[in-house]
Simulated scan of single mutants.
Amino acid sequence: MGTDQGSGEFVREALGVAERITADGSSPWPVEAGRYRLVAARACPWANRVIITRRLLGLEDAIGMGVAGPLHDERSWRFHLDPGDVDPVLGIEYLREAYEKAVPGYDEGVTVPAMVEISSGKVVTNEYALLERDLSTQWREFHRDGAPDLWPDPDAIEAVGEGIFHDVNNGVYKCGFASTQQAYERAYDALWSRLDELSEHLATRRYLVGDTITQADIRLWVTLVRFDAAYHGHFKANRHKLTEMPVLWAYARDLFQTPGFGDTIDFDQVKQHYYGVHRSVNPSGVVPKGPDLAGWSVPHGRDDLGGRPFGDGTPPGPPPEGERVPAPS
């Protein structure tokens, strides 16, 4: 992450290992069950997108997952939740070690999600947007029976997803890390203009594109679910709380209560990461006790809008034992 010194605007760093894993021979990395380990973090929305996609498609057996803890330092994401502070499969403490095996002297951002080749310990890719798409298209051989089609209309999904990325997913970071009042207000205005537009769109539609859950919904939801816990206060995105926006709050609860979404979220880790790591924003490192999470289980009422969450597919089963997270309380 960085800030443009001239404008004061937050600038997201380029991805350092933007390879692909493909089934058609178009890359040096072939699709192969058991060859790769997805390294993610419960706190990170970009990783959460891939965690949800993997869950919905039923790829847990084909792609194992390591979970970095919510706290890290300048050395990168760390496996501080695992015994001995070491990932049990990769045998490393810091994710940076896998980046340096891939690119000796690596000096760019160490981000999650990252796909790591287990045998070599090398990061293969940290290109989250291509990865989530490739899980749907390149890994079809390993999808579960009843896996949904998350890309029924790619052009429409990318069109809505582009605005969500710039103004919402990245927009909250632009608010939080702006170093001038002007940069902050530009990001704030763009964020709320886009959320108002999305609220109007979703007032009469259960999902963003068509009548089923698509990748567009995954992209928007990972920011909404973190909104009140982190972005509203920590990043000063404070025109309203999510719970004060009736349409988006009901939409977010609808997905939270859908298998594959809420069962990937650990609110404690979300708060520990944002408030504990971003010392330029929260110098004390004090983590708030709130907000009250009881509302996530309140009925959402959006069934009346119709829609078929999984289309012709079926819901995923429960998360594997080692991947279960505590329910909000």
Rank of each mutant, 00 (worst) to 15 (best):
E321F: 00
G161E: 08
G69W: 02
E162S: 12
D303K: 08
V222Q: 09
R133L: 11
I157A: 03
G66L: 01
P316Q: 06
H278Y: 09
Y99N: 09
A102V: 10
V222L: 05
S120H: 11
P328S: 04
S297G: 05
G105S: 04
F142E: 13
Y274K: 01
P104Y: 11
M245R: 15
R324W: 01
K122T: 15
H80R: 10
S193H: 12
I92P: 09
L202K: 06
Q257R: 06
S119M: 14
G260I: 00
N170S: 11
E321D: 14
E32I: 05
I157P: 04
V247C: 00
V286H: 10
H232V: 12
V103Q: 14
K174F: 01
G262T: 00
D82Q: 14
M115Q: 04
I213V: 13
G105T: 13
A216V: 13
W249C: 13
D73R: 08
G276C: 02
A43Y: 10
I164P: 01
T214Q: 04
G34V: 14
E141H: 08
G16H: 06
S76W: 07
D312S: 15
Y274Q: 03
V172S: 03
H232G: 00
A102L: 07
P319T: 02
L191I: 13
G2P: 05
K101R: 15
F79P: 09
H300P: 07
R144V: 06
A190G: 07
S193R: 14
T264P: 04
G295H: 01
S26Y: 11
G313A: 05
D87W: 00
R12T: 15
V270W: 01
L208R: 10
G146A: 02
S193I: 07
D167H: 14
V112D: 00
G171M: 10
L208M: 13
P318H: 12
H166Q: 06
R144C: 04
K122D: 13
A294N: 09
I164G: 03
R140A: 15
V225K: 02
L208Q: 05
L71S: 03
D263R: 00
L57W: 00
Y188I: 10
P88K: 07
G2V: 15
A252F: 00
R206I: 04
V110I: 15
P88T: 15
E197K: 07
R140L: 13
A23Q: 09
I164C: 03
L305C: 02
P148G: 03
W192S: 03
Y251C: 10
V222G: 13
H201K: 13
V172T: 06
H278M: 03
I164S: 04
L131F: 08
I92M: 12
D189I: 02
V281E: 06
H300A: 09
G233I: 11
G233S: 14
I52V: 13
G64E: 08
G306Y: 06
R226M: 05
T314H: 04
A98C: 14
I52P: 15
R42G: 09
G210T: 15
L150H: 09
A156H: 04
H143W: 12
L135N: 09
S297R: 03
V168K: 04
K122L: 09
S297V: 01
V225H: 02
V222H: 03
